[in-house]
C-alpha cells in the first residue's frame, strides 16, 4: 500500500512517471494472475466443503473463514489497482478531445477544396472558348451548359445526309457502266447480219419458182412432204396415214412407193410445175429410185407422153465417217 502513490493532478512529468510505474505495475498484474490461480484452487476446496457440511457441521466451520478472508484481501488489491488505471486512462483521454475537432475541420476543408473544383470550371470547357462553341450549334458565347439532345440530333442528321451524298456520288460510275452495257447490247445486233447473206443460195432458187419434195426413208417409215422454197409445208403424207394400207402391214415393200404416188397425185392437183427431189435415207439406191419413179407415175397419171416435173435430184443423206461409238448391241 505504501508503494502506490496517491492520485494527483494531471501534468506531463506526472504522466511520464505514471508510464514508468505502469511498467512496474505490469509485474504486479502478473502477481494478480497468480492470485487468480489461487482462486481457482479455492473453488475446488469449496466443492469438498459442501459434502463435509452435509455430513458434519462442527468440524467444517473453522476452515471456511480463513479461505474467504484470503480471497477478499487479494480481490480488493486488484480492484483498487484497476480503478486507479481507469481513472488515469480517463484523465489521459481528456486532452485528446480538442484534437478531434481539428481533424474534422481538416476533412471539412478538404471537402470544400474538392467541391470547389467544379466551380472553378476545370472539368468543363471555359465560357467563350472554341470547344464550347463547337459542341453546341446554337449555343451562345455566354452559355456554359453542354449541347442539348436536339443539337446532337441535328448534327447526326447532317452527318447522315453527307454520307448519303457521298454514296450517291459513288454510284455515278455505275450509271456509266450501264450505259456501256447498253452500247454492248447494241453492238450484238450486228452479229446477226452476216447470217442473212448466206441465205442467198435459197433466194436464187426463187427465180425458177421451184418446189421441194422431201423424201425421208427410214427402216419402217416413209415421209414425203412438199414444201416451198422457204420450207413452208404445202402437202405431205406418210406410210401410216394412207387409207389403202390402214389395216395392213406397214413393213411392206410397196409402202414407200404407195406414199410417193399419193403425194405425186396431190401435187398434180395443186398444179406444181417444177420440183426438186431431196432424198434422205440410209438405204440402197434401188429403193430411192423406185420412190422417185412412183412420184412421177402419180404426178403423170394416165398421160404417158407428158414430161416429169422433176428438175433436180439431190441426195442429202448424212452418214458419219466412223463417227461416234455406236451403242452396245443387246444380247438376245
Amino acid at each position: 500500500m505504501h508503494s502506490l502513490p496517491p492520485p494527483a493532478a494531471a501534468s506531463l512529468p506526472i504522466l511520464l512517471l505514471l508510464r514508468r510505474r505502469r511498467r512496474r505495475e505490469v509485474h504486479l498484474c502478473s502477481g494478480s494472475g497468480d492470485t487468480a490461480s489461487e482462486e481457482r484452487r479455492g473453488g475446488g476446496e469449496g466443492v469438498r466443503v459442501r459434502p463435509g457440511l452435509g455430513t458434519t457441521s462442527k468440524p467444517a466451520s473453522p476452515p471456511v473463514p480463513l479461505d474467504p478472508g484470503r480471497a477478499f484481501s487479494g480481490d480488493l488489491t486488484a480492484m483498487a489497482s484497476r480503478r486507479l488505471f481507469a481513472s488515469l486512462l480517463r484523465s489521459t483521454a481528456a486532452p485528446r478531445t480538442p484534437s478531434t475537432p481539428g481533424c474534422l475541420f481538416n476533412r471539412a476543408a478538404a471537402a470544400a477544396y474538392s467541391s470547389s473544383a467544379p466551380y472553378n470550371g476545370q472539368g468543363f470547357p471555359l465560357p467563350q472558348s472554341e470547344t464550347a462553341s463547337r459542341l453546341g450549334l446554337f449555343s451562345s458565347p455566354g452559355d456554359t451548359r453542354q449541347p442539348s439532345y436536339g443539337d446532337r440530333l441535328m448534327q447526326s442528321q447532317q452527318l447522315s445526309q453527307d454520307y448519303r451524298a457521298r454514296t450517291q456520288a459513288n454510284n455515278a460510275p455505275r450509271f456509266g457502266d450501264t450505259m456501256s452495257r447498253i452500247a454492248g447490247g447494241e453492238n450484238s445486233s450486228y452479229f446477226g447480219t452476216p447470217s442473212r447473206i448466206f441465205d442467198e443460195h435459197k433466194q436464187s432458187l426463187v427465180k425458177g419458182k421451184r418446189d421441194f419434195v422431201h423424201v425421208l426413208l427410214k427402216r419402217n417409215k416413209t415421209f414425203v412432204t412438199v414444201t416451198d422454197v422457204r420450207g413452208n409445208k404445202k402437202t405431205g403424207a406418210s406410210a401410216g396415214c394412207l387409207e389403202d394400207r390402214k389395216g395392213r402391214s406397214r413393213l411392206s415393200k410397196y409402202a414407200a412407193e404407195a406414199t410417193a404416188e399419193h403425194v405425186g397425185r396431190a401435187a398434180r392437183k395443186m398444179g406444181l410445175k417444177s420440183v426438186v427431189m431431196k432424198v434422205k435415207g440410209t438405204t440402197f439406191f434401188n429403193k430411192k429410185k423406185k420412190v422417185i419413179l412412183s412420184f412421177r407415175e402419180g404426178f403423170r397419171g394416165e398421160r404417158v407422153r407428158e414430161q416429169s416435173p422433176v428438175v433436180l435430184i439431190h441426195d442429202v443423206t448424212q452418214l458419219p465417217h466412223n463417227g461416234c461409238r455406236l451403242p452396245k448391241q443387246r444380247r438376245v
Partner: peptide
C-alpha cells in the same frame, strides 16, 4: 452461190 453437200444430178 454456196456449194451444195451430197450428190446432185440435173435432169
Amino acid at each position: 452461190v454456196q456449194q451444195a453437200r451430197g450428190i446432185v444430178v440435173h435432169v
